[in-house]
Design a protein around this nucleic acid. Structure first.
Lengths: 200, 200
DNA sequence: CAGATGACAGATATTGAAATCTGTCATCTG
DNA sequence: CAGATGACAGATTTCAATATCTGTCATCTG
């Protein structure tokens, strides 16, 4: 809001943009608002970001990257792959549910941004399935999971748990019994990864 | 469009409403349009449906019920439960994908209606998971699937395949490789239903 | 008299004029 | 001269007046 004497950096613009998005929502947040919040002219914002879309994309990427960090720790840990897989899936679900529950409007805002930015979101999903692939590969190497293509199995696991991390299902995350449903799905998938009793 | 001398029945109103929805879309389809299409006054429509919402709900129910029928046949067949499960899931996916692909606007229209009508949709989902439960129960009875609560397992299977039947994922059904992804998820789930190699 | 009608009040949607925003760029300033 | 500015054109959004719709009901008709 008040003009600041600090140098205008991309980082400061991104912070201001997040704040404007938080206050005004995705539909009403304008580049002019961001410039006003920083006490500069909107022309200065365009010096750092070519278009409004690029600015929104950068904000989205920042947000998604922050989401990945905590999970990356779980994926890289040196522990039983099956436990890691459960913890990772639970961590992803809990994080999403907490964000959706604590500040529904902000979550809705980011859901809109995510819908706008196919490329950035695709990279984020690749990042997450990459983390999953690492866990699955470790599990196969340790003989805990049945042999197969780790990337395919990780992709299937990720898709099968979409109900518990994809924003389009957010409305259901408040229902009672959702935790039991989550556990049931994860258990079913873990058993599937372990492999079949009867030979193929 | 042209006035008809036949008696005005709920059925005829529903047909006209489907047509109006198909032509005008969910946002612009009005009760007055429906009455015009039937050549009657809108007051007559209100004699059969208390509100516009009730009319839309009835149309939604009709549509969902039609969707269930084909699958019900698969679920009730007297065949190997594992094949039945695969065919059922594949049938659900194919039907949804075909509808979304053949007439995207109509599919979008019904997606909106589905979003409006929690109760009717809930019943439909109960119907589908009921069909799945029957298959899973048969599989457990035959020893093909590991013992457990059939309803829980069926619910988990249904949620885990949401990517391939929930309209909110419709945009991804055109991507190349989607069939392989579907197969991978179903295989993983089927292996999970068969049970674990190592004792719990 | 069962069923259809259309006038009506309040709610909702449409429309077009005015305001604001996006993106560019010639100009200014430290 | 690197970086900021604000005027500008064309695109988009807002807003208030206007039109349409929803749901009711007294009245009509076969």
């Amino acid at each position: 809001m008040a003009p600041t004497s600090e140098t205008l950096t991309a980082e400061r613009i991104l912070e201001a943009t997040e704040e404007v998005l938080r206050r005004h929502g995705p539909a009403k947040a304008t580049v002019v608002d961001v410039a006003r919040a920083l006490g500069v002219s909107h022309g200065s914002v365009y010096r750092h970001f070519r278009t409004k879309a690029a600015l929104r994309e950068a904000v989205t990427k920042r947000w998604l990257d922050r989401s990945s960090e905590a999970l990356a720790g779980i994926a890289a840990a040196d522990r039983d792959p099956e436990d890691r897989l459960r913890d990772w899936a639970r961590g992803l679900f809990e994080a999403k549910r907490r964000k959706a529950g604590d500040d529904p409007e902000l979550f809705a805002t980011y859901s809109v941004l995510v819908g706008e930015n196919g490329t950035v979101v695709g990279d984020h999903l690749d990042d997450l399935t990459g983390q999953l692939t690492r866990i699955v590969r470790d599990g196969m190497a340790a003989g805990v999971f049945a042999a197969g293509d780790p990337a395919t199995a990780a992709g299937a696991f990720f898709q099968a748990t979409a109900c518990f991390h994809d924003p389009c299902h957010a409305a259901r995350w408040r229902r009672p019994g959702i935790d039991e449903e989550f556990e049931a799905v994860v258990e079913l998938l873990v058993r599937g990864l372990r492999g079949s009793r009867r030979p193929v």
